[in-house]
Amino acid sequence: MNKREIKNNSKNVMVVCVACFSILILVMIFGFIIKESLPAISSEGFKLFSGMLWYPTHSEPEYGLAAMFIGSLLITLLTAVIVLPLGYIIAFFMYGYAMPWEKNIIKSSIDLLSGVPSVIIGSFLLVYVAPIFFKLGAWSRENILLGAVGLTILSLPYTASLMEEAMSSVDKSMKEGALALGATKFRAGFSVISKAAMPGLMNAVILTLNRIIGETMVVLMASGGAAIIPMSLWDPVRPLTAAIASEMGEVELGSIHYSSLFAAGLVLLTISFILTLISKKISRRSSK
């Protein structure tokens, strides 16, 4: 082996090591979370996931994650209902209607928006948006709708740019063909291009959901923090992420409370894992 080969080989080894490191981290995080959540799962059993009441520090403690899990799902759903149509409309406009300079403006403001830290969005909501909701008849300052608005601001740039990418990756001949056959601009974009871009759009939907369900700071600040199942838009919720962030700092190490917070983390990790798998499957199928 000459000097050059040694140099090359050693670089190869380095690159492989760094690449493996990321896999190792993933495996370790999964392993660590499963290991830490086992005590809670074995002592509480199914009650951990079906129980509605969360009294981890009471003398007769109850560790039910269900209400917070449902809270997580509902706030994700509500946000999705707002952000997905908005994101699609923005993407649709950027793809089919916008002049290059308009597209530039939208793109760069979206990029800037995606860089706003979530804690700033949270403070903005509490100071400026909450009083508006209050006037509209909200009985509580922090509520599921306020949280959803925050999550919308946070995920809109992500959704819009992913959807725009999906639409622009469709072959140009499709659009030109549709227009040549006499379809209007709207029809070409809505029926032809969106259909062709469906896998990419679905992918965008799933990645957006994934991002919303894992978001912590905004929901911690703006969605209320009461572990109940919300019955109206003005009711407070406490998603799993908020509970973990709020309680992990002070929990007694090794206790069931500690372990059940990890179980909550495991639930979130599993959801995100499944969503990522689905997204991978969709993009693989579409690239065939």
């Binding site: 509605m52 009441l53 009294y55 509580s140 922090e142 923090g225 009461a226 407070p236 406490r238």
Partner: peptide, 10 residues
């Protein structure tokens, strides 16, 4: 026990 509808804040 405290009611679940009590808001827990940071």
């Amino acid at each position: 026990k405290m009611s679940p509808s009590v808001r827990m804040v940071e």
